[in-house]
Design a protein around this nucleic acid. Structure first.
Length: 322
DNA sequence: GCGACAG
DNA sequence: ATCTTGTCGC
């Protein structure tokens, strides 16, 4: 039952996606908007969130989208939400958000409705923020659509606007002394697009941190370091671990156990969070119309009637017409 | 054929 | 993202 991912989108679709990115980009706030962000100890910060999407192996459509909320500074999981989703849009570098973000927005909206007191004060996103081909990566996209402060955390350097993972870059990495050390990533225009951060003392590969929304780069880097027990910030790491686990549990019994000769060494899992009384459908209905899926469906061959003038609804009453 | 290629 | 085993180090 492994469905195949759609191929590369038509040029027209990419064109619409670019227009949408340009539009939403005007709504990005790249400075601190919250009091805790300016505090040296981040006092006032109590909840940090992380999101991730993991895939079913051999299937580029079936995936598990997860949102977790951790206490700060303890970094203990307070909330976990995993759900299976079907990703219709293909992955295209520079357009990651159009594939993954609708489901992440849904997860945030579910939390907003059911457990508003657990709403995270900042979200760590797997991927870039303004360090992007057009200055609007998935962390910006999710930030604008949810109106939450977001931090983009990528594991590899996106070589864009003159940035290169060349010998000089590697040398700068080598010179990072201890956890928390970083150096700026300057784009061709002289703008600092992000920071390469050594997330802890014994990490060779840095993290690439960039602004997503409603937070300065300085605060984003400092908080990222403050959330790293290991190389990957704990919120994203937990979202990743739990979404993979969810797929294993969901697909494990019926899957092909013979193919997995059991070589696990994982000890235990806490299991103390609202993991859904599960009356929920596999895919929740879209509460926030992020127009992403509609753009995709409207444009591709499968959809006979293209309709312009769709409306984009962003969280507070920020509206925009395509 | 070769380099890029967030996830 | 996922495909994949062992291995070196604390």
């Amino acid at each position: 039952m492994a469905r195949k991912a759609a191929g590369r989108p038509q040029e027209e679709t990419l064109s619409l996606w670019k227009r949408e990115q340009a539009l939403l980009k005007t709504l990005v706030v790249d400075r601190d908007t919250e009091a805790w962000q300016r505090d040296l100890a981040f006092s006032g910060l109590q909840r940090v969130g992380g999101v991730d999407v993991s895939f079913v192996k051999g299937d580029s459509v079936s995936a598990c989208a997860s949102l977790v909320v951790l206490s700060y500074p303890e970094l203990e999981v307070m909330y976990e939400d995993c759900r299976m989703v079907s990703l219709t849009a293909p992955y295209v570098s520079g357009f990651l958000a159009f594939r993954e973000v609708p489901f992440l927005v849904d997860a945030v909206q579910q939390l907003r409705e059911k457990e508003p007191r657990l709403m995270p004060q900042v979200l760590f996103v797997d991927g870039n923020g303004v360090l992007h081909h057009r200055g609007f990566g998935v962390a910006c996209h999710l930030g604008v659509l949810t109106d939450l402060p977001c931090i983009g955390v990528a594991k590899k350097l996106l070589q864009v606007d003159g940035l290169e993972n060349n010998a000089l870059h590697k040398e700068k990495i080598r010179l990072l002394k201890g956890g928390g050390d970083s150096f700026p990533l300057m784009g061709g225009s002289g703008t600092v697009l992000g920071m390469a951060l050594k997330s802890h003392d014994h990490s060779t590969k840095p993290l690439y941190v960039s602004v997503g929304h409603k937070m300065s780069l300085e605060a984003a880097v400092r908080l990222t370091h403050g959330c790293c027990k290991f190389r990957i910030p704990e919120p994203v790491r937990q979202a990743d671990i739990r979404s993979r686990d969810y797929i294993r549990r969901t697909l494990g019994v019926q899957g092909a156990p013979a193919l997995r000769p059991e070589r696990s060494k994982k000890a235990q899992r806490p299991k103390a969070c609202p993991q859904g009384a599960s009356e929920e459908p596999a895919v929740s209905c879209c509460v926030i119309n992020c127009s992403v899926k509609s753009t995709w469906q409207r444009t591709e061959p499968t959809c006979p009637s293209p309709c312009e003038g769709a409306i984009l609804e962003v969280h507070p009453p920020a509206l925009a017409v395509i």
